[in-house]
Write a protein that binds this DNA or RNA. Structure first.
Lengths: 216, 216
DNA sequence: CTTGCTACTGGACGATCGATCAATTAGGCT
DNA sequence: AGCCTAATTGATCGATCGTCCAGTAGCAAG
C-alpha cells in the first residue's frame, strides 16, 4: 500500500536541463525532423510536456541549447581523440581525421540531428549565433593543428584558409557517407583527407602557405 | 455579371505536375521545412489543396519528384556552364567550379531546400533512390572532367576517388557559405577548389592517380 | 509533524497538419 | 448547343502540434 513510489522525482534545475537536452538529442536521432516535438522529447525524457516550458521558456530555446551541447561535445571528443594519440602534430591530425569517420560519428542517425539544426540556423538568429561560435572554434582547432604540422615540415601554413578547406572536405565526405553509406568506404574518406594534408605539407598548395619573404 | 471569368483553368496533367513541382521548390525556399506542407505549396501554386492529391497520390511523392527535379536541373546548369566556356578541359572545370559558387547557387534559401530533402533521404527509401541516382550522375560528370584534365597534363587520374573528393570539397564549402555567408568569401572557396585541382594535376595527390605500370 | 517552496503534472486551447471524397465546373468533342 | 469527362474545388476528418496554466506533490527546512 504505502505510497512508497513517488510519482516523480524532483531534480535540480541544472540536472533537469541537462537531462532534457540529452533527451532532445536522442529524440532527434531516433525520429529525425519529427523528433523535435515537445511531446516526443518529453516522452523520451520520461517527464510531462509541461516541464519543458518550465525549464526552457520555449521549444526554440531547448533546441538551441541542444545544438550548442552537441557541437561542443563533438569538438571535445575529436580534440581528446587527437590529443590522446599525442605523438607528432602529424599523428595528432591523423587521429583527428580517423576519429571524424569513426563508426560512432558516422552513425547516419546523427546527420539527422545536424540537418534539423542547420535548417534552423538560417531562420533563427540565436541558432545562427550558436553555429558561428562553434564553427569558429572548430576551425581554430584545425587551423592550429595544421600550422603545427606545417611547421614541423618547415612550411608556414596559413591557418585560416587551410582550416576552411579541411573542414569542408571533412564535412562533405561525412555528409555523403551518412546519406548513402554504400557509395564509398570510411577508409577512403580518411585517405582523401590524408592526401590533402600531405599535399599541403609537400608544398603543393602554395596558396595555403605564407608567402615567402622576398628580399630586394 | 457574365460569368466571363472562370474560377479555375484546367491544364494538362503534365503541365500541372510541373507547376506543382515548381511551387514546391519555391515554397521550400521561402519557408524552409515548414514550406513542405500541402497547404503552403498549393497556396503558392494558386490551386486547392486537394489538387495535389489528385496529381501525386501523396505528399511524399510530390517531394520526391521535386528533389529529382532540383538535382537534375542543377546538374544541367553546371554542365551547361562548363560546356559554354568550352576551351580546354581545365577551363571547363574552372567554369564548373566558379558556377558552383555563383550568387544564384549560393542563395542561402536554396540550402533550406536541400536540407529538407536530405533529412528525408534516410527515412524514405524512394528519396534514397533519388539521391543515389543523382549523386552518381554528378560524380560521373566530375570524374570525366577530372580525367580529361589529368590526361591533358599527362596524368592518369582515378576518376572515382577524385570525383568523391572534389564533390565533397565543393559541397562542404557551399554548405558553410550558405550557413554563414560572413565566414569567408566565394572567391576563397573557388581558390581552395582550384588549388586542390592544381595539386592533383601536379602529381601531389598520388593516391588519386593510376599506379604506374611497373615492369619486372 | 508541519510548512512552504517550487519542480512537476496533465489537460485545455486554437492552429495546422495530410488524407480523403462528394460536388462542381471547365473546356474539348460530337 | 448540349454532353461528357476529368481536372479542380473545398469542406471534413482525426491526429498532432506548441503554448499555457491551474493544480499537485516531492522534499528540505523549521
Amino acid at each position: 500500500m504505502a505510497g512508497s513510489t513517488p510519482k516523480f522525482r524532483r531534480q535540480s534545475a541544472a540536472a533537469r536541463r541537462r537531462a532534457l537536452i540529452d533527451a532532445t538529442l536522442r529524440s532527434l536521432e531516433r525520429h529525425g525532423r519529427e523528433g523535435a516535438s515537445i511531446r516526443r522529447i518529453s516522452a523520451i525524457a520520461g517527464v510531462s510536456s509541461g516541464l519543458i516550458h518550465h525549464h526552457f521558456r520555449s521549444r526554440a530555446r531547448l533546441i538551441a541549447a541542444a545544438y550548442e551541447s552537441l557541437a561542443t561535445e563533438l569538438q571535445e571528443t575529436l580534440y581528446r581523440e587527437s590529443a590522446d594519440h599525442g605523438g607528432s602534430p602529424r599523428e595528432r591530425l591523423s587521429a583527428l581525421i580517423r576519429a571524424s569517420f569513426a563508426p560512432s560519428i558516422l552513425e547516419p542517425r546523427i546527420l539527422n540531428v545536424w540537418l534539423v539544426f542547420w535548417s534552423m540556423v538560417m531562420r533563427a538568429p540565436s541558432m545562427r549565433a550558436v553555429h558561428d561560435r562553434t564553427y569558429r572554434r572548430y576551425r581554430s582547432i584545425l587551423g592550429r593543428l595544421l600550422q603545427a604540422v606545417g611547421r614541423s615540415r618547415g612550411m608556414r601554413v596559413r591557418a585560416r584558409p587551410a582550416a576552411i578547406a579541411l573542414s569542408a572536405l571533412l564535412d562533405g565526405l561525412w555528409i555523403e557517407l551518412c546519406l548513402s553509406p554504400g557509395t564509398f568506404r570510411p577508409t577512403e574518406a580518411v585517405m582523401l583527407c590524408e592526401s590533402w594534408v600531405d599535399a599541403l605539407c609537400g608544398g603543393a598548395l602554395p596558396q595555403l602557405l605564407q608567402p615567402r619573404k622576398r628580399r630586394s
